[in-house]
Design a protein around this nucleic acid. Structure first.
Lengths: 248, 248
DNA sequence: CGGCTTCTTGATCTCGATCAATCAGCGTGG
DNA sequence: CCACGCTGATTGATCGAGATCAAGAAGCCG
């Protein structure tokens, strides 16, 4: 299909992703899949039309049928409980799987919103499950994704229950830096797709606190922040601060 | 095997559990398995000798090979990071699966300790995984278990980042009550297997705070607590308090 | 430009941590 | 059976990190 001519063919190129040619395949579900497996996975995946900033991927409480792999961009998951305030429970970056926490109750436990222009691969879960029967590597990768998310959650609980505001911010930036590095982007210079309000909500702090500490970090020469543009100046110090023990 | 005579037979009865006769089968992995599947699952499960209070099921960092289903008793998972203080990330009650967060890194991310005399079923994960290939219901149950743990983690994050100390305690008791109810025990009267220190660590509070609030709850007629003996007097009020919105 | 939202900065107040005894439970050995 | 010592639980007094309240400043888009 070197010279796509028909609209059908053009549509196919535009909306049907190929794991084989995806730059994320070494981080995403196809990890460890042989060619044949990747093809089978390809067959059940659809790429949704790109989401614009603020667009909703799915709403809290709606019926679960698909998990999504982030292809580009980023999203946040927000849970509203009771009469109450929202809780931002996760940010999702390329190659990460969204919606795994919906399997148990058969409905999405939070609303997922694009933070910028974002493309995702849509994977019907029942077909993924059936495919995982025949492909042990795929099954393993699924178990591993969920297990990793569990571990990350535990780390987050530790952050929320034991770390000071400074340590939380430091962890957040060190974590982002590491995630960008893994994905082949600069770990030192990047643009935040989330607002201060998102960050503070996620870290369990007030917006004002985030702002103040960012200012302090700037003064200490740890980072240079201008709006959403971030330059990490002293990653080792940041990491040290993030891991440094309690206030005891 | 009505009259076990040989030591081998007696050993078999003592240490080889049977999902078919286990009172937890409707909550645990065999959920939704047909007879044949349950037998296959039985074949790979071993029951470990009972753990006594304080015994360690596995240590943080040791190689992952088995997940464990709690049969009776209870355990806590504790993670030590850096030079630092422990973080209690989970309590496990009968029918719950322990060790799912170890799959990704192939080592246990925390130490799991028995809080009282506890029996567990030991399930080699590689065999469980292979069995899940042939038994879609088992696979589904595994996915669901992990998914549920993810959801519970998100709820915990919400608790840690948005709830006051009173609300945390109220959530904790309401949650325990519900878990006991599910398992067929009284939701109103039970014995805590964990210490105040465990509770406070889990909830991200100081021991003194837990103690004080427990006293206050007692005064308000919400619960009657004597040592580790708990009587829930006003569950609706407790639930209301737990869900009640922010301090805004 | 003007009307937004988002971000920063400053002043005050509060919840829960910390410090410090005291108390209760409980196993151990005399 | 009781004194002793240890660990865990309660209670009281103080303090501080970070929330909240209250303005400004700076983007951002029509």
């Amino acid at each position: 299909m070197r010279h796509p001519q028909t609209t059908a063919e053009r549509h196919e190129l535009a909306y049907h992703p190929h794991c084989q040619t995806c730059s994320l395949s070494s981080l995403c579900l196809p990890l460890a899949l042989k060619e044949r497996g990747t093809e089978q996975l390809d067959a059940i995946i659809r790429r949704r039309a790109p989401l614009k900033k603020g667009d909703i991927l799915f709403r809290q409480g709606s019926d679960f049928d698909c998990v999504y792999a982030v292809r580009s961009g980023s999203l946040k998951q927000v849970t509203t409980e009771g009469s109450g305030e929202d809780q931002l429970t996760n940010f999702y970056l390329p190659s990460e799987l969204v919606g795994l926490d919906a399997i148990d109750e058969d409905r999405y436990p939070g609303t997922v919103v694009a933070l910028e222009t974002t493309t995702v691969c849509e994977i019907p879960f029942d077909r993924l499950d059936r495919l995982s029967e025949a492909l042990p590597e795929l099954r393993g990768q699924l178990y591993r994704s969920m297990s990793k998310e569990l571990r990350d959650d535990r780390r987050m609980m530790r952050l929320l229950s034991r770390k000071t505001a400074d340590q939380r911010l430091a962890s957040f930036f060190a974590g982002l830096s590491e995630r960008f590095r893994r994905r082949g982007y600069s770990p030192y210079s990047f643009r935040l797709s989330m607002s201060r309000a998102d960050i503070s909500n996620y870290l369990g702090l007030a917006v004002e606190t985030v702002s103040r500490i960012l200012g302090r970090f700037q003064g200490q020469g740890l980072v240079a922040v201008s709006g959403r543009e971030v330059n990490i100046l002293d990653l080792p110090a940041l990491t040290r601060l993030a891991e440094e023990e309690g206030v005891h």
